[in-house]
Each structure stands twice: as C-alpha cells, then as structure tokens.
Nucleic acid binder design. Sequence first.
DNA 1: ACCTGAACACCGTTCAAGT
DNA 2: ACCTGAACACCGTTCAAGT
Lengths: 227, 227
Amino acid sequence: MTRKTAEAPAKERLSRERIVDNALALADAEGLDAVTIRRLAQDQGVTPMALYWHFKDKDRLLDGIAERLLSDVVMPSEGPDARPWDEQFRDLLVALLQVLRAHPATAHLVMTRIMLSEPGLNLTERALGLLSVAGFSREQATQVASHALASMVILVTTEPGRPEASDTAEREQRMRTKKASLQVLPPEQYPNVVASADAFVQCSSEPYFELGVDLLIAGIRGVSATL
Amino acid sequence: MTRKTAEAPAKERLSRERIVDNALALADAEGLDAVTIRRLAQDQGVTPMALYWHFKDKDRLLDGIAERLLSDVVMPSEGPDARPWDEQFRDLLVALLQVLRAHPATAHLVMTRIMLSEPGLNLTERALGLLSVAGFSREQATQVASHALASMVILVTTEPGRPEASDTAEREQRMRTKKASLQVLPPEQYPNVVASADAFVQCSSEPYFELGVDLLIAGIRGVSATL
DNA sequence: ACCTGAACACCGTTCAAGT
DNA sequence: ACCTGAACACCGTTCAAGT
C-alpha cells in the first residue's frame, strides 16, 4: 500500500503511443487529475518539455486518449444485416459502452472528440445510417446520435458507487457517510429519497447498464414511431 | 471590446452569497475555467485568502454554485395533480432544463451535487414519487431519476454550436473550420457524416431540446410498459 | 468575526539551446 | 529529429498574524 505508483525505468524512447499508454494507465489508476504533463514526464524519466515535441499541448494529448478509447471499440461486423435497426443500434451502443466501462475516468473525453478520429467517425457513420433507416431526418438523426453517445458516457460516469480512483477503504467510508446523510433526512418530507438511500450509493452494474441502454433504445423507438 | 471585465469597485462586504453571485456571473461570461479563487478575490478587491473564511475550499464554492442553480428551478406547484405521471415528470424536467440552459458553463456541476441541497432533494423526491407511480422498483426509480437529471445536463452541455464562452467572431470561425473538416471527408466512406456536417455544427435550440426531452420521456414510458 | 502577508507545492507553456 | 534548462505566469492552499 505504498503511495507511489510503481514505475518501470522506461528505457525505451518516447513516442505518442507510449505517452498515451501511460496517460491512460495513470488515469485508470489515479484519476484524470493525476494526468499531468509533469507527472507523465517524471514517470518516463524525462523532462516535461520532452512531451511537447510529441504533442502540441495538453489538449492534444487528451485527444490522443479519446482516440485510443474509440479505437478500442470492437464494432459489430460490417455488411448487410437483416435484423431491425434498433437491435443493430443497440449492438453499437453496447460495443461503445464496453470500452467506456473499462475507463470511467476518461470516458467523458470522447464526448467532444468523436469526430476527430477515424474510429469515432466510423461509429458515427454507422449510427447515422441506422437512424435514417428508422425514419429520422438528418438533423434529428444527428442529434439523436450525439445524445446516444453522450448517454453512454454519463451512464458510466454517474454509476452509483463508482470508485473515484481512490482506494477501496475510504471509498466505502464515503459511501456510508453519504448513505447516512440521506437516511437522516425527515422521512415525512423525503420519504422516497430516504427509502432510496441505498440505491443512490451503490447498485449492481449489469442491471444498471442494461436499464440505461433499454431506456435509450425505447426512447428512440418511441419517438421514431411518431414520425 | 476591452479584454478586462468591467468590475464594480465592490464596496460592500464579502459573503457566501456575493461570492457565489460573482462566481456564477463569471462562469456565464468567461467559462468555468475563469472561475478561480484568485480571480474572484481580485474582482472583489480582496485578498485570495479572504474567500477561505467563507468557503472551506474551492469545491465547497462549486457546491454553492450548484445549489444556487437548483434553487433557481421553479418547481411545478405541489398538491394533487390528476394528470398522468409522464406529463408531470416532463414538467419537472423542463423546469430543470430552463435553468440549466441559462447557465451552460456550470450545468454539469449539479450532476454530482443534487443530494447536497434542499432544492435538489425536493426535485429528486418529486421525481422518485412519479417514477414509483409509473411502476418502477426503488432501485430502478433511483437510477432512472439520476439518469434523467444527467440527461438534461448533457443536453445543455453538448448542444451543437453552443457558445463556449468565447466571443461570437472566433466561435463562428471554429464552427466553419469544424464543418469544413467534416465536409472534406471521403463521401463514399462517410456519406451520412458528410451530409450531417451542418447539423453537427449548429442547430435550432427549441426543436433540439424538445427532441431531447421527448426521447427521455418516451424511453421511460416504453420501459415502464414492460414492467 | 473577518481579512491580510508571506510562503509552499504545484500547474501548463515558451524560448533558446544542446546533441 | 528529439530532448534539456531556465524561466514565466499562473493555480489552490496553509499558517501565523493582524484588526
């Protein structure tokens, strides 16, 4: 339980790829706030300015992380698919959700960055195609696609009881504190909140994510039926 | 077009309220990144450390902003309401959406902070009540309520063409640049993306937000029908 | 009760220079 | 092409002290 992260001496040269690797690993382990130019440099045994040869600024590095996430999405295979559009759309969402769930601390980075990378463009192209089959106009399809992506992100980032890059001990403590603060509320004024104290503080992941996807798909289906 | 924000000499004393006022106004004008302990102090003609008497740290100040937003929500009046739960739920969402739209730069602050203030608790209590009428279990109602709140937030923060606290001139330039970068893509590979270039870069707000709310309500209604 | 002064340990980034 | 050194202009925050 030492506070320092174990760092390999990192003999090998720097590269965009290596830098993104480390940034992502660091974010996974300690949260995005720990991802700092200076910290990354230190972990690589290099001067902070060394990174600026590979990335114009920190924002481009974050772009790189987002691109990495998106390139990790394993898309449903191309080609004709006889199934209804909503089933295909769901597969797309789930594929995206898988990688976001693996990297909750960086998931939100993709929201503003999908159109900046090839894998993001591919994902978007597929989504737009399916939504136009569903009967949406260009404008609506675009908005629904954006919203669908964003929904997967917030599903991951707002999961009740999600470990916020802290160790398990103090995380459980925070959960208990929060739960207690809800249970202590006047039950005649907040009966539902008090009764939901548990659910606000933790949940079982699989049903949670399934509900989230169901909600979105049902919404799209519902709206498409009124077109 | 001077670069300095015009600051009243601010003769009056400091207070939590005044600080939050200024922080919110500053965020609205220049984005949340501009909201800095030091900057706020300077604008009030006071030393940075003066703020620490009123707020334990910056995070508590952000809590204060979130609470302010939530207290600005004008809730549909209490008391028995004969209308179906989904109409009532929609009113709740729209009420929240109104204030989030007025403060896009700070909207996301409420996502993790609803349960920390009385207005947030009231909003949540009402939402949970309606969802339990709709037939959801405690766990599901809690998750749906959280997701609904978060959806309103991302609707606001990811609106295409949303002004990111920059002046109109360079904002239009960025939009043109982004649009051009999409239109230049190979149309045989990304037909839908290219055709949607316009829609990714701007939209008319009212239909956009209505679609967003429709999507969510339709989703909840759809899922509730399968219970 | 309310605010100041000085200091600490951080940031991202520029610019000129080394190999 | 790839990296270093020194410096700049910022952060949030602590701690002791003033009124």
